[in-house]
Amino acid sequence: MEEERHSYQVNHLAQLESEAIFILRETAAQFERPALLFSGGKDSIVMAHLARKAFHPAKLPFPLLHVDTGHNFPETMEYRDRYVAELKADLKVGLVQDSIDQGRVQEEKGPLASRNALQTVTLLDSIEEHQYDACLGGGRRDEEKARAKERFFSHRDDFGQWDPKKQRPELWNIFNGRKHHGENFRVFPLSNWTEMDVWQYIKAEEIPLPNLYFSHDREIVHRNGAMLATSDVVVPQPGEKVETRTVRFRTIGDMTCTGAVDSDASDLDSIIQEVATARQTERGTRSDDKRSETAMEDRKKEGYF
């Protein structure tokens, strides 16, 4: 038989892609109002790309939701708008500024203030406003220790909270998205991917990225052991060291808490090389994780991404 001679080898990227597409389709099928969280960062770009493949040649059966702190890199916003137009996708934006104006959250004071933690309230408000019952996120288990225990289909109670001790077991390919009224799910199709897998997939699929990910000269300020890009929202304080360096960003989030790394990596091959030899974890540049040893766990329980 011909079929027995065939090796049917499937490499790791094809397996991860197939799994992620399965989860995306499962989300569309099991939920009434899903949305895909889209920040313009590389993980959400990969998610949108996978979603496009999952439902091709139809359009995405769910909108993209951007929780916008108002402190974005301009490059991210340009990329977002261009990509959304190309996908012909429906983009919804939840503004942290609105949550602040409505008195829903208190903005942190002082030069070191970050809106990162405030995003949770805006996210939960957006979920409530649009009645989303599942939000697809690009979170990966390799990113952080609390995320290592996250399910593909992660159940949240009426308050958007995650209870790590009461998670549903997930076996085989079977995902239980049943819920009571008011509850919702976060769904993580990239759970089994590592940072390296994401970069390799971007290369294999030739997915364009915002140029922030590639090395460039930029004015940065040293703050709390991180190098932050100077801007309207990151204003150097007296005594802080400001200089221009050749840097790139390993993750892209809010400008107030996303640190740059020194790098000459100007194309995907050199980035993959750099990731392979990196001495610090990817989120090592994120000051939001460094506030305490359980910073991520605490934020996740509250309903963070």
């Binding site: 499937v10 490499n11 892609e17 294999a204």
Partner: peptide
């Protein structure tokens, strides 16, 4: 769809 991912470098083609 997936098995046609172009493989031009050894490191892109690993077993899982």
């Amino acid at each position: 769809m997936s098995h046609e991912i172009p493989i031009d470098d050894g490191y892109l083609d690993m077993d899982l």
